[in-house]
Design a protein around this nucleic acid. Structure first.
Lengths: 280, 280
DNA sequence: TTGACTTTGAAAGTATCTCATCAATACTGA
DNA sequence: TCAGTATTGATGAGATACTTTCAAAGTCAA
């Protein structure tokens, strides 16, 4: 990958506009570079002269030559299937690449951790509109939980995200009916908070608890009807929540597809309700 | 393969020169068609007007449109393995495995989209304690942003997550000093909200904007000093934010490691402050 | 804050590419 | 062979795409 390499090489001393071009080019490589210079300028909000200067800096005579080179690369690539991934960059010393590789590995490990039947069951009970769904995560994992509730809300009614402050929980807990779902996300450094909540919901309200946790299993698992355990250990100071996010996205996507008719209607209704505000 | 099909369809009633073109095009498909018309004319020993007439016959407006179509086809082909919901049929076989495989693929594509230098720069300015950091995401992407601010807070002071309600933003905006950082996450179905915020922060407060977006580049990119573009298109009803999360985690991890001494102290202080509450 | 330096986009200029015209040529059938 | 038709390429007009110039805005160090 000649051009890609040149970009990376030049990348330390680039100007602001040039960096934008970098991102645009690399994020849709190599097709972004095949558009006419004007179109690319429009997309990246950078003037065409800046693009021209940029490709000069990369060592090309002009934009045309740059494009020809991109096409050539594709032509080459077509022949040798070797180049598909990487080959272009030094593996050592690249923090990002290293990290991503590990995260990717975690991701592929996730599939094995959850059975198809388990996945199906979770999706099914979450699709049941007669049950209300209450969602909460821990201090850090709540961002994952939030992602979940925001999307689930588009596919079905009665989705409630509990606020972080435990003082307000009773308001929700008292509303829980038997068979309602409490969807918890709890990764290590488990929160005692959530355990109490789970115990109460399970014992007093007969709610079904669906738990997303890690392989060490949050204590909440004692009360959980369904447990989805994602690998999160990536060997750095923080754990990686990407497998958990992927898992949750898979659930959400499955639900949205199954209930596509409703989901679509809800999205449209949402947009319609939003429109007026946008004028402001 | 649209163009190829058109050629085959038209092939019965073609003239001599046109048949030559056919051969040339098909024998080096699609690259022959990507050369300038003059070059192709030279190579095939056919005049450029003949080529022009030929592509007209195929149903294209002109040579340019023909080329664009060829490029489009390649683009489509590139992401061939995914393309499932396009035909509308969710796969029931092993839904989860399928989804995870695609997410994994996205993850590994992420590395190529961001250069090491870019990554380093973003980490560096985020580590600068003299700058305050303001964080916000869109309606859905805010969960990613939240993950970011929660963790970053452990590594450095002066991290503020803006509330969702724009009414309250001014309180934060007025506090922004030049060189402060506004960290935005904005994926497609971009929010006009964020654009206004970015414009104001950039123009009025001289803040540096770091933007995490997708390859279609949020309009915020106009005001951004650093843009990280993650692939998110997974070919289902929702996009997948996993690559973006991974990217953010990489940044966070890098920062936590570089500033480990401080980060550790802050975590301990945090825990110490929390202990008393836990007894309750 | 000032002043040198860098970066940037508007506008103008230049090159290139594409297409329409038209005359020349090749082909076909009488 | 000749006339009619279809095909082709030379040419130049017109459009498009790219680059250079230049002035304004931004940035950084003193």
């Amino acid at each position: 990958m000649q051009v890609r390499a040149r970009i990376e090489q030049a990348s330390p001393d680039l100007t602001n506009a040039e960096r934008k071009l970098c991102t645009a080019l690399l994020s849709d490589y190599p097709f972004a570079g095949l558009e006419p210079i004007q179109v690319l300028a429009e997309r990246t909000k950078v003037s065409s002269p800046s693009i021209s200067r940029f490709v000069n800096k990369l060592g090309f005579q002009g934009y045309g030559e740059f494009q020809r080179q991109l096409i050539n690369e594709m032509k080459q690539g077509q022949r040798s299937p070797v180049h598909v991934h990487g080959s272009g960059r030094p593996i050592h010393d690249d923090y990002l690449e290293n990290f991503m590789a590990r995260a990717t590995e975690l991701m592929s490990a996730t599939t094995g951790a959850i059975t198809q039947a388990q996945f199906d069951r979770v999706c099914t009970i979450l699709m049941d509109k007669k049950r209300s769904v209450y969602v909460l995560g821990g201090r850090f994992s709540d961002s994952i939980a939030l992602h979940f509730s925001r999307h689930l809300r588009l596919s079905r009614p009665h989705v409630h995200h509990l606020p972080a402050d435990p003082e307000i929980w009773p308001e929700y807990m008292l509303r829980m009916k038997p068979r309602d779902i409490l969807f918890l996300v709890d990764f290590r450094r488990y929160q005692p908070n959530l355990l109490h909540l789970a115990k109460y919901a399970s014992d007093q309200r007969s709610a079904r608890i669906v738990l997303v946790t890690d392989k060490w299993l949050s204590p909440v698992s004692r009360y959980a009807a369904e447990i989805l355990a994602a690998p999160i250990e990536i060997g750095t100071v923080w754990d990686s929540y990407t497998p958990a996010l992927a898992l949750i996205e898979a659930v959400l996507t499955r639900i949205a597809e199954e209930t596509w008719h409703d989901t679509r209607a809800r999205i449209e209704a949402w947009d319609a309700a939003r429109m007026p505000a946008e004028g402001l």
